[in-house]
Design a protein around this nucleic acid. Structure first.
Lengths: 197, 197
DNA sequence: GTCTATACCAGGATAGAC
DNA sequence: GTCTATCCTGGTATAGAC
């Protein structure tokens, strides 16, 4: 297969996936029909099925792409010098997480979907693992450097605490997505009061 | 309409709703077909449509019923004497929340559905509000009694902190539903370390 | 009120021309 | 590779008998 064709293929996939994401944000994964994606992308059914095997494959592509780049950004933040305190890391992580994706809605939909769709679940759990690891690495470093724990203790502590940071972040995203009156700043400042400063 | 008929009607609705819940747990709201509910409940299509106007009405009924009783239990716990410490309230709340519903899966599905379905969203947000209020009432009391804050300060503090307790709980349910390797006890003991004891 | 059988439709996927 | 038109499945809801 020629080089040009391959580049083109990738570009087309991306274009369709982006259109699909917009539809998913509006309607949700299920309610979004191929007709919607056809309209939104401007491409035809034939063109789309030339790039994707099925609607489900589009969903997977979108889900995969969605969070992927964000995590790198978030990790960069945690390596800042001076090292941020635990009370100040969740907010920036969440802003990073939501940049680009204007609304956390699609993430919440993804969680719901993951309960019953094995492919989506695999992707979603993979994302959660990576985020947990990210917090864990940061916390281990912090406990060791700022708190004087031995490396082993620091890691053990971090491992216990990381899922909690993940949970608090998820709770934020969920409430932001669903409650019209959610006050994100209050949430984060409330959090900071409980965490080491 | 005669008395007997009405009682019967309620019982029938309940029976169908319970069967539907079992199907939803297995398959999710969308993947569950009327045929599934017919099989699981033993009733026929005609019987079901005699009790419910549509599949969606069944979903709403299930969602409504689902958490309703649990909240009362949870509230009772918070009124225990001696008053439990904040570090020890989330665990019991979650156990209460999950009793009966073996798995938190349906809740997570509900959140995902709420993003795009207005009826489900209304129900879900209502539930979240009530749980937030519950934590808020407890926290206000605790801050005032155990911590010596003025009533006004206690309420303000509680209002800021309650959504955080909700978020942590939601994070727990989400991770429990999706991560096969989730360690709930570690999560809760990690949490306790950050909260007043 | 409940049964079986079925009408009816939405929507994902494909066929065949270009 | 892409277009339009269409097939076909799966699924909700109803019709009509009991």
């Amino acid at each position: 297969m020629p080089k040009v064709s391959d580049e083109y293929r990738q570009a087309k996939r991306r274009e369709i996936a982006e259109a699909a994401l917009r539809v998913f944000e509006r309607k949700g994964f299920h309610a979004a029909s191929m007709a919607d994606i056809i309209t939104e992308s401007g491409a035809s059914a034939g063109a789309i099925y030339g790039s994707f095997k099925s609607k489900n494959e589009i969903v997977l592509e979108v889900a995969n792409t969605l969070v992927d780049e964000k995590i790198a950004d978030a990790q960069a933040f945690l390596r800042l010098d001076p090292m941020p305190v635990p009370g100040a890391i969740v907010g920036p992580f969440l802003s990073g997480m939501m940049s680009g994706v204007g609304k956390p809605d699609v993430l919440v939909q993804l969680w719901g979907e993951a309960v019953t769709d094995d492919d989506i679940r695999t992707i979603t759990v993979g994302i959660m693992k990576r985020i947990t690891d990210m917090y864990e690495v940061y916390l281990a470093a912090w406990h060791e450097l700022q708190n004087g724990h031995s490396p082993a203790d620091a890691v053990a502590l971090a491992r216990r605490q990381a899922p909690l940071f993940v949970g608090v972040s998820q709770g934020y995203l969920l409430q932001r997505a669903l409650r019209p009156d959610f006050d994100g700043d209050a949430y984060l400042s409330g959090l900071a009061e409980f965490l080491p400063r």
